[in-house]
Amino acid sequence: MSIHHHLDDASLVRYASGDLDAAFAIVVASHLAMCGKCREAVRLAEAMGGVCLTETPEADLSQGAFMRLSQRIDAELDKDQAQPGEQQTSEAVASADVPLPLSHLIGGSLDDLAWRHVVPGVQRYRIDMADTQSSLYLLKIGSGRTMPEHGHGGTEMTLILRGSYSDVIGKFDRGDIADLDEHVEHQPVVDSTGPCICLVATEEPTRFKGIVGRLMQPLVGI
């Protein structure tokens, strides 16, 4: 897989330090599942955390802290011996379409989802998450369709899962991520023969402009 659009360095560091909220973290983790370069980049950012950990001032642990831990471990060891051969259940298996971190939320298929039409040529599948103030959803945009021009109310991340689109920034194919801040205005056109499916996290409702834009509002309506 050849990926041309990667995470912004500031986002890499936010991910590494645990600063991204759940919706954005899912988009980033899904991109990492598809992008070796960004996996390596996150590892480097996490190494900053490793250095910081070794330089953090120590805080005294309570009396008997290791004893308590040791007892929990003994209990686990006993259990392991009582139930030999019992393996931990393996995690959901990633399909060709759906990266592992996303498959925990939507399962392994993009085609079996309850897509809802928002405007002609555009369907949405909203992913409910408890721990986020942002929105996470999938968009399916028909071939040749144009998303209406919109400025961003806040940070937005878009990961392409199928098909492709182009905008002023360039061409976005499967695995590419558009990691945009609030200043970017763009108008993606789907240029793949089939529909383009992307995973989107937005910090605030995206503001669409004009009459078409108002029609598009249900896309992100909170």
Partner: peptide
């Protein structure tokens, strides 16, 4: 609150 792991071990997620 939600039992979904948004943060992953980067070595375990690759497709």
């Amino acid at each position: 609150r939600q039992p979904v792991q948004a943060y992953v071990d980067v070595d375990t997620v690759s497709l």
